Amino acid sequence: MTRVRLDAGAVAAFAMWQAALTRLISAQPGFVSVEILPTYDTSPEWQVIQRFAGPAALEGWLAHPPRRALMAELIAMKAAGAPDPTEEAAPDHHAFGAVAEVITTAVEPGREAEFLAWSESVQAAQSRFPGYMGTFVQAPVTGDPPRWAALVRFAKPQQLDAWLASGERRALLDRADPTMSHWSSRRLAGGFGAWFAADESGRRPPAWKQTALVLLVLFPVVMLEMRFLSPILAGLPIAVATFIGNALSVALVSWPLVGLAQRAMAWWLDPPAAHRGRCELLGALVMVALYAVEMGVLSRLF
């Protein structure tokens, strides 16, 4: 992972830099994927995660002279007083709280270079749109014709929709040779998706808060099933008994438990901007306390 803190005036230059990097890395031996994303929405700090099939391919990429030239350009974009871009082992950012569109493109064999050149223009354009939260590009694994996958993230659904419906994107699609590639797309929901209602702007709670709340309501359901349901199902095949238990758990969690918990913790899931810090801290303490109460009460059943 390459980490950099950008200067406020380098937004346009960084958009072009992302496009150039994506085109260059996509043509390298052993390339698996590249992911470009900010630490959070509107953050000046960005991470560029570069994945390769093995250590040798990664080392070749790190030593590639054109990459070094791009890194020199990136240094010129860093904020005044910020350290030079750093290189470190990459964490997993797939739980990032944002809305994403997955675009799969089948490229005719022999026309990969043409496709990557066109993709560079798309990357540069989408990076300039409000709410842009990074891109994940994956090279083909199997298939004929080869299929490239791109995951485009925006902070809010309406911001992603604005890019997808924009005249700039439509012009880029019209410019592409229809004999070169064929594409399809689908929307990904963050976290537990439809279990959590969106606010007026279409935004859902961050994925980590969704997960924390689901754990809060799922844990007692599983414990109660172990205490009271498991003895009843003991005579059934284990696969059948497990399926019944899981089906009951999912049904109870999806309705009504998550809805009730969401209403009770709405002040923490989407706190007002004026009191965000206080609500975040208080909400975290409340969640820890509720976990402790659940464990204390339910431990008496066994």
Results as ranks from 00 to 15, higher is better:
P83H: 10
P85G: 08
T86P: 08
E87N: 12
E87R: 08
E88P: 01
A89D: 14
A90V: 01
D92H: 05
H94K: 08
A95P: 10
F96K: 11
F96T: 12
A98H: 03
V99G: 02
A100I: 03
A100V: 04
E101C: 07
T105G: 02
P109H: 07
R111L: 12
A113F: 06
L116Y: 06
L116K: 08
W118P: 11
E120Q: 10
S121C: 07
S121L: 14
V122R: 10
A124N: 06
A124H: 12
R128F: 00
F129S: 07
F129E: 12
F129W: 10
P130N: 06
G131M: 00
Y132F: 14
M133V: 08
M133C: 15
G134R: 00
T135W: 00
T135V: 13
T135F: 07
Q138E: 15
A139T: 03
A139L: 01
P140C: 01
T142M: 06
T142A: 11
G143D: 11
P145H: 01
P145R: 06
P145A: 02
R147D: 02
W148P: 10
W148H: 02
W148I: 02
A149T: 15
A150R: 13
L151N: 12
L151T: 15
V152G: 06
R153V: 07
F154G: 05
A155M: 09
A155R: 12
K156M: 01
Q159A: 10
L160R: 12
D161N: 11
A162L: 04
L164T: 09
S166D: 13
G167W: 01
E168T: 10
R169F: 03
R170M: 07
A171L: 14
A171M: 07
L172M: 11
L172C: 02
D174H: 02
A176R: 15
M180L: 14
M180K: 09
H182I: 10
L188W: 03
L188E: 09
A189P: 11
A189V: 04
A194E: 15
F196Y: 11
F196S: 10
A197M: 08
E200I: 06
S201R: 14
P205W: 00
K209P: 04
L213N: 06
L213Y: 05
L216K: 09
V217L: 02
L218C: 06
